[in-house]
Amino acid sequence: MPFFILRRCLQAVNVLVVMSLLVFAGVYAIGSPLDLLVDPQATTEDLARAAAALGLDQPVWVQYGRFLSRALGGDLGDSFIHGSPAIGLILARLPATLELAVVAMLIAVGLGVPLGLWAGLHPDTVGGRTIMAGSIVGFSLPTFWVGLMLIMVFSVQLGWLPAGGRGPTTELFGLPLSVLSVEGWRHLILPATNLALFKLALIIRLTRSGTREALQQDYVRFARAKGLSTGRVVGVHVLKNILIPVVTVVGMEFGSLVAFSVVTESIFAWPGMGKLLLDSITQLDRPVVLAYLLLIVLLYIVINLVVDLVYALLDPRVGRGGSGR
């Protein structure tokens, strides 16, 4: 096991370095942030001074070298726009995004697993078919458009919920959270639902096919034949069978939830790091873009590792030497 973890960590470092190189080259090629930053009345001399202040007067490989050496010390550079460390800016927005993603994931799992189970246990009933049809529609709904429609219905037409923003937050262990107050929930529920829809459809389908597969396994048939109650069969055997795929999806898709929150955050003006990324791209705030992407990659790697470990715990048969995905 330690060897397994070590190897994964080495892989992770590789991926991070390659990623940083690609992104650095990519973001570098977009353009110079100087035109946006410097005062309109600036002379050539002012421009040169500002370029030197930001390290932009050096050739790209020197800039990358500087970045890399500092990154090893945990410093991902200062934002051009804000003048403070990029990583700090992102971490300040991280709780908002994570809260949104976690709540969305809870909605997806909380609704998806029961619905999928039911559809799997009763595949040929009207209910089962409706759930499956619904999940296909869920797959097909463009997230951003659903966001607009949610705002149109619940905020503009009915006036029940706010159209965006995070509303007041309550601190818990130093983290500002929305879930602790009614007002916070009123702001959270629309964006979280919006973000959850796609994953909800995914989990319904996964759970359903897992359930159906399990029901056909010999031991389940046997248990049923032996007269075990449906509740117990489902509770013990079926759930166990679908747990692994669901855990995998929750893990794997969590990263993509965080990534796709860019869209939801920009619609609902949720002050998370996705919004920060979009703004930083339009303002060419290179250090922030870079730091954000590296952080996402890191998050992915960590999640993958955790998923693999959970896997190993849930099912001893999963090879520890294999690639594990």
């Binding site: 005062d39 002012d46 001074r49 500002a50 930001l54 726009i81």
Partner: peptide, 10 residues
């Protein structure tokens, strides 16, 4: 303030 991204020096 030599590290200013948008200077007031003008």
């Amino acid at each position: 303030l030599t590290n200013s991204p948008g200077s007031y020096t003008s």
